[in-house]
Amino acid sequence: MRRVLPFLLLLAACGDPSTGPKITGAPQPGGTVVVTTKPSEVARPSLGPAPDNLHGVDWLRATLPAKFCGVEEPVQIEDGSAKATSTTWGEVEVVVNPVKAVWFGDVDADGRDEAAVNLYCENGGHTASSQLAFGLVVVRSAKGALELIGEISTTTMRDDAPHVPLLAQPKFEKGAITVRELWYRPSDVNCCPTGASLTRWWVRDGTLKADPAVQVS
């Protein structure tokens, strides 16, 4: 429970956050996250056994990737977090978001829900200022195993932002996931980002490709 208070509206934050590489100016669209709609097309390592119904998975004790944080190999989550080494930030902690751990929806139109697991990584300080990056890990159940579809990372970092952007409210539909991204203007405090953008990630030609981000506030 130690991570719930610092994350709730980021009220426990103090000082400047540690951030990753920054993009100058207004929010910019992101790149491409590879998604395979047919498991046979691309060999993907299993993340461990999984029931057909992903609503029954204990995400606080799952094996999950965290490349959005520069972690090259999947990490074993225990009690909601795991220590790992990032190629960007060095020693980090990968955390399942204690406020909202996972969203569900059917993006590959097979009649079963996929899961978007809500993760962030931090430098171990356990405050909002220690948060380094946020990401959604999209997975499915395939032949009794948990299989990675892809990762969605934030795309709207400003060079003058006081905190890294957040991800919220993914909406699943046939062939796409629309993600709401909350980003910070220079005058914003850690608790309260005032910028918001929507990015739709489409399943096209076996991949999940992002349309340009659309600023909504």
Results as ranks from 00 to 15, higher is better:
residue 137 V to W: 00
residue 199 T to P: 01
residue 147 E to H: 12
residue 144 G to T: 10
residue 148 L to F: 10
residue 126 H to T: 10
residue 208 L to Y: 03
residue 110 D to M: 07
residue 43 A to S: 14
residue 108 D to G: 05
residue 121 C to E: 04
residue 101 A to Q: 15
residue 42 V to F: 10
residue 51 P to Y: 09
residue 55 H to L: 13
residue 183 W to Q: 01
residue 96 V to D: 00
residue 148 L to W: 05
residue 123 N to C: 04
residue 10 L to M: 14
residue 172 F to H: 03
residue 14 C to S: 14
residue 192 C to T: 11
residue 171 K to T: 12
residue 159 D to V: 06
residue 169 Q to T: 12
residue 121 C to W: 01
residue 150 G to A: 15
residue 204 R to M: 11
residue 217 S to F: 08
residue 63 T to Q: 13
residue 141 S to R: 08
residue 88 T to I: 13
residue 31 G to F: 09
residue 38 K to Q: 14
residue 9 L to T: 10
residue 148 L to Y: 02
residue 82 A to H: 02
residue 148 L to P: 03
residue 140 R to D: 13
residue 139 V to H: 10
residue 181 E to I: 04
residue 1 M to T: 12
residue 41 E to D: 15
residue 74 P to I: 09
residue 51 P to R: 11
residue 204 R to H: 10
residue 130 S to C: 01
residue 46 S to L: 12
residue 166 L to D: 00
residue 95 V to A: 01
residue 164 V to Y: 00
residue 142 A to G: 02
residue 214 V to E: 10
residue 150 G to Q: 09
residue 184 Y to G: 05
residue 62 A to C: 11
residue 132 L to W: 02
residue 99 V to C: 08
residue 135 G to W: 02
residue 100 K to T: 15
residue 153 S to I: 13
residue 195 G to K: 11
residue 198 L to D: 09
residue 9 L to G: 14
residue 212 P to E: 11
residue 155 T to K: 07
residue 186 P to W: 07
residue 20 G to L: 12
residue 50 A to S: 14
residue 17 P to E: 15
residue 110 D to Y: 04
residue 67 K to P: 00
residue 200 R to N: 06
residue 54 L to I: 08
residue 163 H to K: 08
residue 157 M to N: 03
residue 143 K to F: 09
residue 77 I to R: 00
residue 44 R to W: 13
residue 188 D to F: 06
residue 156 T to D: 04
residue 120 Y to E: 02
residue 76 Q to L: 13
residue 17 P to M: 09
residue 15 G to L: 07
residue 87 T to R: 11
residue 212 P to M: 08
residue 214 V to G: 05
residue 28 Q to L: 15
residue 198 L to Y: 01
residue 66 A to N: 02
residue 140 R to E: 15
residue 214 V to A: 11
residue 196 A to N: 04
residue 216 V to N: 05
residue 175 G to A: 04
residue 16 D to K: 15
residue 190 N to H: 14
residue 84 A to E: 09
residue 94 V to P: 00
residue 174 K to G: 03
residue 120 Y to T: 09
residue 53 N to D: 15
residue 135 G to N: 06
residue 142 A to Q: 13
residue 10 L to K: 08
residue 190 N to S: 14
residue 95 V to Q: 01
residue 160 D to L: 11
residue 213 A to W: 00
residue 22 K to L: 15
residue 7 F to W: 12
residue 106 D to A: 06
residue 144 G to H: 13
residue 29 P to Q: 12
residue 202 W to C: 03
residue 96 V to L: 02
residue 91 E to F: 02
residue 146 L to W: 01
residue 65 P to H: 07
residue 206 G to M: 11
residue 183 W to R: 11
residue 8 L to W: 14
residue 164 V to G: 00
residue 105 G to H: 05
residue 76 Q to G: 13
residue 34 V to F: 14
residue 132 L to G: 02
residue 180 R to V: 12
residue 175 G to R: 03
residue 23 I to W: 09
residue 73 E to N: 13
residue 87 T to Y: 05
residue 103 W to K: 06
residue 83 K to M: 12
residue 179 V to S: 01
residue 184 Y to T: 10
residue 158 R to L: 03
residue 146 L to H: 10
residue 84 A to D: 04
residue 185 R to L: 14
residue 20 G to H: 05
residue 2 R to P: 04
residue 215 Q to F: 06
residue 155 T to S: 15
residue 138 V to G: 04
residue 140 R to N: 07
residue 109 A to G: 05
residue 9 L to Y: 13
residue 178 T to S: 10
